[in-house]
């Protein structure tokens, strides 16, 4: 929040209790930390380049998360909401494509690394 900011866009990702109708017990996140931090920094730099971002926070947890818990938070403050919405969307969408973090879904009858297999 800065005196010049007119809008703060916050994305909070939460652990759902199901995937395609199957009950999810919990999620387990793993990161290649040094590279994850480097890729997240690149995303932040790009957001500042593309939009008049004033403040930007990117938070991601690793380890075991229960249903309802929060693995990721993105907050963006800008003078106007258009930039805030666009930048926030860009950050979370890009994070999901480039940052070396992996999510394993634990079900009642097994576990799956998300997005690994066709």
């Amino acid at each position: 929040m800065t005196p010049q900011s007119g809008g703060i866009d916050i994305f909070i990702g939460t652990v759902r209790d199901n995937t395609k109708g199957k009950t999810v017990i919990r999620l387990e996140f793993e990161a290649y930390e040094p590279m994850a931090i480097k890729e997240i920094q690149k995303i932040a730099d790009e957001a500042f380049n593309k939009w008049p971002v004033q403040k930007l926070l990117i938070h991601h947890r690793v380890g075991v998360l229960e249903v309802g818990e929060i693995p990721v938070i993105i907050t963006v403050s800008c003078a106007h909401r258009d930039a805030a919405f666009e930048a926030c969307r860009y950050v979370i969408d890009t994070l999901k494509q480039t940052v070396p973090i992996w999510k394993k879904e634990i079900f009642e009858d097994g576990e799956v690394w998300v997005a690994a297999h066709p």
Binding site: G13, F29, A31, Y32, P34, M35, A36, K38, H60, P71, V72, I92, L95, K96, Q97, T98, V99, P100, I101, W102, K103, W113, V114, A115, A116
Partner: peptide, 28 residues
């Protein structure tokens, strides 16, 4: 990934490089 950067197929490797296999990511 080589030294924390995604590597192209032609990139040369050395014994000093930090090399990692990056399966499809699923953060967020």
């Amino acid at each position: 990934a080589v030294n924390n950067e995604y590597a192209s197929d032609e990139g040369l490797l050395t014994e000093r490089d930090e090399i990692a296999i990056i399966p499809p990511v699923s953060g967020g």
